[in-house]
Write a protein that binds this DNA or RNA. Structure first.
Lengths: 339, 339
DNA sequence: CTGTTAGCGCCTTCAC
DNA sequence: GTGAAGGCGCTAACAG
């Protein structure tokens, strides 16, 4: 299958190849009559602009890479869609890879994308990601990497929610309800987001008299299975918290399910709250109190930031935090302390 | 930024460029000592294999495109992840685009991917997709397109669930419960999947005496908002079904929410059932009866089929249907007809 | 304003 | 077993 080239178009329309090329890029230096003739010829022949050939010459590919752990979590799905939207709007095509929270797999995906000459990479890092292997791959071609939602290095750009602020807001709300003891359930151990949320919660609870154990919280996978497992682990230890804070809404679904399996009703027997505020949280029964972290904002800010970095690689590393907002719903609001 | 080329590697290791190229591809015709010297040089220089240059020469790009409407629906997210997995395993890198169920946007994304020289495209078609515009884009470079989960043409490959069978299974189950009247709520109007599910339901209800209106069902967007709206539309007409069948689990979440807003309890006042069986359905209260359609299977089968097509474009159009399985849960099982 | 020329990095013949 | 040469489709610099 021989494909139609600019040469063919040029020949048919009686201009040179470089003129045809200028028409493609909409140069003003070409008379309209000529341009129209060229365009007609392109349509007639079924010409397809070969971006890869063009980009090989121009040393940019107009592609970006996105690597996230997993989109079965609707929060990451929303982030992914926002980034695709922004990339598309800026004329880029997006490669995608799911690391499934496996750092080795993630490195392999970065390598492949670099070989495909991506202009930049959005990375929602897998647990255990490190700077050295990442830089070992991307520095050979100076491909910029932006950390999304979690970070492992201060030297790369980062865009994510203000997790500390989110934790603080949530803690203050819970304290005001008369909670006396709260635990955090689930979330990937050692992730920056989890640590920050714990830090924010501790800060918000400080001086309120609410018991909150910074160390004793159970890390799990970031999904419903993790939530169920986390609740089981805590209750089986004989701990009986008035309030369970899930690492994320995805985890909270599992918290609801496991509580009910044990005949405890969320929102009545135990206050439940969480982070992210994905769309379903409002539809649950009882509706779930959650701190919205706006994946759409994070995604568009991230795209803006990465495109800046591509334009100017000399900027110092940028950190952007997106402002969260507490959504109070019945899972905490209807809860009452035991008298 | 000058990047390291095979020439540089060849020079450093004292072989010719073509020898270095053979080493890259692991040719057996090169003595091991030479190969090791070349590999060492590649590591020393930080050489990156430039797939785009290679692929320009070889007339394949080792990339595939995936266009889906929207991954906030976990069913589509699962499909996307399965396809990424298979593409990755076969050595392909995956471009992704979200049409947001807008056919024009979808065509633009196909065009961009074709310009990027993708070797094939997975398409979960937006509402209103037509064969002519799609072929108008992809036929110029003979890029194969595989229809995923919905189809608009018999001339392109298709992989999706056996929706007719799924509908039939569900209808038979509902009939056995003593349901006397059922309605389908939601789903994108005119989509092949919706028509097939309706056809299957009608077939399953035939002769059982259960009332089911093939025409009067309310189409909506395929998400929770659509489900809520669909229920509202039906109940506001004064229709009072003993059983609501949601087009998908995503729609069913909205059905649950809207029923409760009207003080009707799903599973007690109204039996609710649905299609897809996403992970959350089992965790709902009451757990949701649903027909599993296995996005993981569909994705891997789709990848297999598209790769076959890339190898041999002369095959007749292939259609693969994935076997569904009914999961009976409390949302129907605990429901009892009024006596 | 238009055409000519020389590559971008790699792969594939074809000689040696 | 190894090297030399040509070209994939496009763009950018330079002539005309």
């Amino acid at each position: 299958m021989k494909s139609i080239t600019l040469d063919d178009v040029a020949k048919l329309s009686g201009v040179s190849r470089s003129t045809a090329s200028l028409v493609l890029r909409g140069s003003a230096r070409i008379p309209e009559a000529t341009a129209d003739r060229v365009k007609l010829a392109m349509a007639d022949l079924g010409y397809v602009y070969n971006r890869r050939a063009a980009n090989m010459r121009r040393n940019e590919s107009m592609t970006l890479g996105l690597i996230v752990t997993d989109i079965s979590n609707p929060y990451f799905a929303g982030l992914t869609m926002a980034i695709e939207e922004a990339a598309h709007a800026a004329g880029y095509t997006l490669f995608v890879g799911y690391s499934r929270d496996d750092a080795e797999r993630q490195y392999a995906q970065i390598e492949t994308m670099v070989q495909q000459q991506v202009d930049g990479i959005f990375l929602l890092p897998a647990t255990g990601s490190e700077l050295a292997p990442v830089c070992g791959i991307v520095d050979r071609l100076n491909v910029p990497v932006l950390q999304l939602a979690r970070y492992f290095s201060e030297e790369l750009d980062y865009v994510g929610p203000d997790n500390v602020g989110a934790g603080r807001q949530l803690a203050q709300h819970l304290a005001s309800l008369g909670v006396t003891f709260a635990v955090l359930v689930g979330g990937p151990e050692n992730s920056s987001a989890r640590k920050e949320r714990i830090r924010g919660l501790a800060a918000g609870f400080a001086g309120t008299g609410v018991g909150f154990d910074v160390n004793g919280t159970a890390a799990t996978t970031n999904n419903a299975a993790g939530g169920a497992q986390g609740v089981a682990r805590i209750l089986d230890q004989g701990i009986w918290p008035g309030c369970i804070i899930a690492y994320s809404d995805a985890v909270a679904f599992g918290v609801y399910a496991e509580l009910r399996r044990r005949s405890l009703e969320p929102g009545r027997d135990v206050a439940v709250a969480s982070f992210d505020d994905i769309a379903l949280s409002e539809l649950l029964l009882p509706p779930l109190t959650s701190v919205a972290t706006y994946p759409g904002h994070i995604g568009s800010r991230a795209a803006e930031s990465l495109l800046n970095r591509i334009r100017d690689s000399t900027l110092p590393p940028q950190r952007s935090l997106i402002e969260p907002a507490l959504k109070v719903r019945a899972s905490t609001a209807q809860w009452r302390p035991r008298t």
